[in-house]
Simulated scan of single mutants.
Amino acid sequence: MDDAIRYLTRPDGARLAWRAIKGAGPTVVWLGGFRSEMAATKADALAAWAKAAGHGFLRFDYFGHGVSDGDFRAGTISRWRDDALALLDELVEGPAVLCGSSMGGWLACLAAIARPERVKAMVLIAPAADFTEKLMGPELSDEARAALAADGVWMRPSAYGDPYPITQALFDDGARWSILPGPVPIEVPVRVLQGGADPDVPWTHALELANELKSPDVVFTLIKDGDHRLSRPQDIARLIAAVEELVA
């Protein structure tokens, strides 16, 4: 495949945008973060690596993200998990290496639990497992809680751009998919890359996930001065090295 944007139509008619590179070995599947999109820095870097190395690579936009259909406010962990499983089931032949960033790390875990026979290994970048309940929820102000109770939605300020909507439905649904405390029934090799200066996912939270994975082959890399995005050249090099190790 030539990495052009294509669409997969879901049962409700919503179209999910995806791009793929055909290549040898297990397919690397990129699962982006909350409000991210498949044209982001790390995904682009992995696509360039896949082209050069001759490996298969798939990336996509969740419902309500990027160029996929849907209203972001209507998105939930259930919906985005189903998106990931649909792409894995319909577009990936053979084993996959799941590469998840932030929320994508949580969704990668949920996909691996649902399809253990399909997933060969995982790379998790600042994995935000249970972020609705364990990271975002405890930080809600009285004003935010009042808005959620009254309107079902709160406009959350962002250090990365304009405020964005957080719904009560997202919190309610996220609690259904909690995986911490574990054990987390994932037994494949896992590499975790985590920034020590991450303001969104504390390194202790990512380490808890790493410790709760049942796999004996888990390597946790703390990048002491790394932020949440881990998109600097040296961070990208670590990401590609981790993926290369696991597709070998």
Rank of each mutant, 00 (worst) to 15 (best):
L209E: 11
W49D: 12
R73E: 14
A108W: 10
T221A: 03
H205K: 06
S102M: 09
D3N: 08
T27M: 05
K120L: 11
L87V: 09
V190G: 05
A112M: 07
M1Q: 01
I5E: 09
R35M: 15
V247S: 03
Q234S: 06
T132D: 14
L209P: 09
D198H: 05
L246F: 00
V247L: 06
M136W: 05
T76M: 02
A52F: 03
A241P: 07
G64R: 13
P165A: 12
A112Y: 00
A14C: 11
F72I: 12
A114H: 03
R238C: 00
R156M: 04
G105K: 09
A237I: 01
G32F: 02
K134W: 00
S158A: 12
D198M: 08
V29I: 06
A96E: 00
V123W: 08
D3G: 01
G23K: 06
A126V: 03
A129K: 02
G33M: 02
S36V: 10
C99P: 00
A144G: 15
L110D: 11
W30E: 13
A4P: 01
F171A: 15
P183S: 00
K224R: 15
D89Q: 01
K224Y: 05
A237C: 01
K224D: 10
T41H: 00
F72T: 15
L148P: 13
C99G: 04
E117Q: 15
